[in-house]
Computed example of a mutant assay.
Amino acid sequence: MSDVSTLLGEQVSVKLSGDVIFEGILTDLGQDILVLFNGIKYYYIPWMHIHMVYQTEELKEKIKNPNEPSITQEMETISYRKILQNAKGIFSEIYVTGNITFHGYVMNVLSDYLVFYSPVFHTMYISLSHLKWITPYNHKVVPYNLNDDTLSVHPSTTPLHRSFESQIKKEIGKLVIFDGGTDPMKIGRLNKVDNNQLELCVASGENVYLKLAHIKSVHLP
């Protein structure tokens, strides 16, 4: 950590899982998260998904220092959980898997997952261990240019459990969509949740079995 801290204020490249590379100014860091400004917005990236932080001799583009504060400005020390708590109510983009990102609002932060409300997907449960990054939008950004009536947030009234597994068990017997629905084998009726394993009945009527530890997001159609 002390070595990385020497790069504070410098333009760096950050390599994530899946060979995803971000470039920006390293504006802050903590034991489990770092903050990168790419010239337009801040990215809050958990250390668990970072493979490498480095400076390159030849910069593709010189990034100007931010002229707006990040949500860490008033924190004495930053952490993954503190940043998620501070992001509540701010329209944000999050990334967990594949080639899609989710846009919406952090509603609650529980022990190992967060509740996220998306104007498109509505209430979602996102595993904290799979959240690769979050970037809050400028307060002036209106989601999808929707008016207040259309945008009104209607979060689920389902009681929240502390753990991701316990919360998913509440959805047994319902149609669920895992990981954004890009894989048809992750869409179906949830039959069972037991011993870190899920039983899902897909459209064909076939039962498939998924490991809970690999589930990144959950929402109901």
Score class of each variant (00 low, 15 high):
194 D>K: 13
66 P>Y: 13
175 L>T: 15
33 I>D: 04
212 L>W: 09
23 E>Y: 11
8 L>T: 05
156 S>T: 13
181 G>T: 05
9 G>S: 10
31 Q>C: 10
145 N>G: 02
15 K>S: 11
219 H>N: 12
166 S>I: 06
211 K>G: 13
52 M>W: 14
213 A>Q: 04
137 Y>H: 15
106 V>C: 05
111 S>E: 15
34 L>C: 12
101 T>N: 13
129 S>A: 13
181 G>I: 02
219 H>R: 07
217 S>T: 15
14 V>E: 04
124 M>C: 12
102 F>A: 05
125 Y>Q: 01
196 N>V: 00
23 E>P: 01
18 G>N: 09
214 H>W: 05
19 D>Q: 12
85 Q>G: 00
145 N>D: 13
159 P>L: 11
99 N>L: 15
40 I>N: 09
126 I>H: 06
210 L>A: 11
2 S>D: 15
123 T>R: 09
57 E>I: 08
162 R>L: 12
180 G>H: 02
12 V>G: 06
107 M>L: 15
117 Y>K: 01
35 V>N: 10
179 D>V: 04
48 M>V: 11
165 E>W: 02
192 K>I: 00
166 S>E: 15
124 M>R: 03
24 G>P: 08
60 K>L: 11
16 L>C: 06
126 I>W: 03
98 G>Q: 06
153 V>H: 10
176 V>R: 02
147 N>T: 06
147 N>Q: 08
90 I>C: 00
152 S>W: 02
178 F>A: 01
96 V>H: 11
221 P>S: 13
199 E>T: 12
174 K>Y: 04
30 G>W: 03
211 K>Y: 03
112 D>C: 02
60 K>R: 15
51 H>Q: 12
72 T>H: 08
57 E>G: 14
